[in-house]
Amino acid sequence: MLKQDIKKPKNIFRSPKMRSDNLKAWFGSHEALNEISLSIPTFHVTAIIGPSGCGKSTFIRCLNRMHEVVPGTRIQGNVYLDEVDIYGSSINPVNLRKRVGMVFQKPNPFPTMSIRDNVLAGLRLQGMKTYDSDEVVEKALVRAALWDEVKDILKRPGLSLSGGQQQRLCIARALALEPEVLLMDEPCSALDPIASAKIEELIHELRGKYTVVIVTHNMQQAARVSDVTAFFYMGKLVEFDYTEKIFTNPKYKKTEEYVTGRFG
């Protein structure tokens, strides 16, 4: 496994890139997250697992303040990025999202834009000029393992790509902004095994340079790509530890049942 390339420091939780502290989140009166305290280690991959509806998406959407985009939602508690409270009154969520990128479960390339324009969409949305950005486009697409497939068709609509290619395009779009943290919500759920393998490879490459949080329903995938794993159940964080520990010797029975596929 590629994972062995990186030497694991003694305690990767010591200076986390992000950290939530007693985080609660609501949709209307429905409480989706209950007191989540979790540290996301810098330059490592954190997997979030748990049965459907347990709050995985809600949690990562709180990390880039996308939760509040949905009307009628509310949070309580704190989330820190480099030990700065991202829900502090001086923080503009728009600026936060420049540093904390996100890839959605369903590929959502912008339908009116070409492949190239999709990659540059973030820069343009942020009001930056993109006259000579060929380099940015190439770099992002190479990283997302899509360059070879699209380098001759950059002018074509983003929607003309296959689902797997579209998802990699969305990853390239996020990477073009060089975010410090990349949140991925089930990025492979719409993909075939080959496309999933490519994205897993990409996540391996991102390790060490970026902090990655990935939500997944695929236990093998979580075991393959992540350094640490958080198990959520009914809006609560049940267990959070090194991935090997979670999958081989979990502390709690619930976790064991879930990772061995006995429920969920």
């Binding site: 880039n64 996308m66 985009v69 728009v94 600026n95 999202r97 420049k98 990128g101 996100m102 959605f104 369903k106 959502n108 390339p109 912008f110 339908p111 009116t112 834009m113 969409a121 973030g122 343009r124 949305l125 942020q126 009001g127 969305c170 779009r173 996020a174 902004l177």
Partner: peptide
């Protein structure tokens, strides 16, 4: 999902409307 995509890329409301929603 398109609007959320634009917000997640650090677009503010106006930029999202003019670059993504209107087109």
């Amino acid at each position: 999902s398109l609007k959320e995509g634009a917000y997640a890329l650090g677009g503010n409301r106006l930029a999202t409307i003019f670059r993504v929603v209107l087109p």
